[in-house]
């Protein structure tokens, strides 16, 4: 029975050469990959500036009251396959021609490029992204003397899209993301007689909207020189 104590040690010793070989293979694969993309300029340190237009097609669980928005963004790219986007925008919804809702967002996203961007010489660079934002919602019923009701909340968003690289420095980007507002809720309800009122709920749960965004960005300069 005593010799069983040595069993884990023996197993470890047997596994070590296999582990070493796997590590070596991984390193070799990584080197080969790096050599393959070495001809392209490293993208780390890129600073891009751009503008955006947004379409909100889906609001709080229903296909209703589509909203249109506009804003701007800048991007700071840490490495070839990862980029970060920092944005501010405003989206407005006409609620059955009886009220208006404004959503102001300020937030950030991390983007992961599914394909190596190859110095953005590809026409399409698809990516997935996730991020966070702070938002202010204001809802106002149409007419004189009606005060807007507003709430601050936080939101998370995730989605995907693609850059359309018209030049290596300039891209149009089309993306789709779902944004979940976490926190207090404010929305309108319509009475049977057609009149409308605003309802607020404290920490009522999750609500969100599906956003389609078209943006244009230009890589203005490099914030730092990437390692070769």
């Amino acid at each position: 029975m005593k010799h069983l104590i040595w069993l884990p040690v023996l197993l470890c010793m047997a596994a070590t050469p296999a582990q070493l070989s796997a590590q070596q293979k991984f390193k070799e694969r990584q080197k080969a990959r790096e050599a393959k993309f070495a001809q392209y300029e490293k993208q780390g340190g890129n600073f891009s500036l751009g503008v955006r237009s947004t379409l909100s097609t889906f609001d709080h669980g229903q296909w209703r009251n589509p909203g249109i928005g506009m804003g701007g963004q800048f991007r700071i790219q840490p490495v070839d396959r990862i980029n970060t986007e920092w944005y501010a925008d405003v989206i407005w919804h006409n609620i059955n021609n009886k009220a208006l809702r404004y959503d102001y967002h300020i937030g950030w996203s991390v983007m992961y490029y599914l394909l190596h961007p190859k110095g953005f010489t590809r026409l399409f660079t698809p990516y997935i992204e996730a991020g966070h934002c702070f938002d202010l919602t204001r809802v106002k019923i149409n007419g004189e003397g009606n005060k807007p009701i507003q709430r601050w909340s936080s939101a998370v968003q995730m989605g995907g899209g693609t850059h359309i690289n018209l030049t290596p420095k300039f891209d149009l980007t089309l993306k789709c993301q779902y944004m979940l507002h976490l926190g207090n809720e404010v929305h309108t309800h319509e009475n049977e007689d057609g009149s409308i009122y605003i309802e607020t709920h404290k920490n009522a749960g999750w609500e969100g909207h599906l956003l389609f965004t078209l943006s244009a960005s230009y890589k203005l300069f490099k914030l730092w020189k990437p390692k070769k």
Binding site: V51, M70, G71, A216
Partner: peptide, 22 residues
Amino acid sequence: GGVNYHILKQGRWDPYFGLTPG
């Protein structure tokens, strides 16, 4: 304010399109 993309990089004709929120 925004960005315009000019399709031809030289020449007398200069067609373009742009995204310009305001």
